[in-house]
Simulated scan of single mutants.
Amino acid sequence: MDELASDNNNCKEKAGSSICEVLQILGAKWAFLVLEELLNGPQRFNQLQRNISIVKTQSLTDTLRHLEKNGLVLRKVFPTVPVTVEYSLTEKGSDFQAALKEMDKWVQKWGNPVQAIESAGKTL
């Protein structure tokens, strides 16, 4: 995530920019997908990985750590054998749902029409 650190440093130069602040909090490339998936409820790592199969294991780990560090995701460890770890959204993470809905509206209106047609064909 060295690229992320570099981007965050560049962002700090634009002090006061709310977009930069959002990017620093969310940070990771796959953060939006992880947050959207966790809106469905708490999930274990392997469950998340299956549901977001486009994200590689290390990237998912890094994204979850970053979101946890920034207070959007809660990591709960259960003392089982083997240890069970479950991820869920905090209140701060759940509150991001409104922003995700607005992004969804925007992409429905302005997204790639070819991709939208392909997606519609898959759901029929």
Rank of each mutant, 00 (worst) to 15 (best):
A98V: 10
G93H: 03
L72M: 15
K101V: 05
K76D: 06
M103V: 06
Q97W: 02
Q97D: 12
A98G: 01
K92P: 00
P79L: 12
L67V: 05
R75C: 08
V85N: 13
K69A: 15
V83A: 13
V85M: 13
G71S: 05
G71M: 03
K69F: 14
L74R: 15
P82N: 09
A99K: 09
L74N: 12
R65F: 10
V81T: 02
G71Q: 08
K101P: 04
V77Q: 10
F96D: 07
F96G: 06
A98K: 10
H66D: 07
L74C: 11
V81S: 04
V81E: 03
Q97M: 05
K92I: 00
K92R: 11
V73P: 01
E102P: 00
Y87R: 14
L100I: 14
E86T: 15
V107H: 11
G93N: 01
L100V: 03
M103I: 04
D95Q: 15
G93A: 09
F78G: 08
G71H: 06
P79F: 11
Q97L: 00
S94A: 09
E68S: 11
A98M: 10
P82V: 07
L72F: 12
N70V: 06
P82E: 06
E68A: 14
Q108F: 10
G93C: 09
T90Q: 05
T84F: 03
A98P: 03
V77S: 08
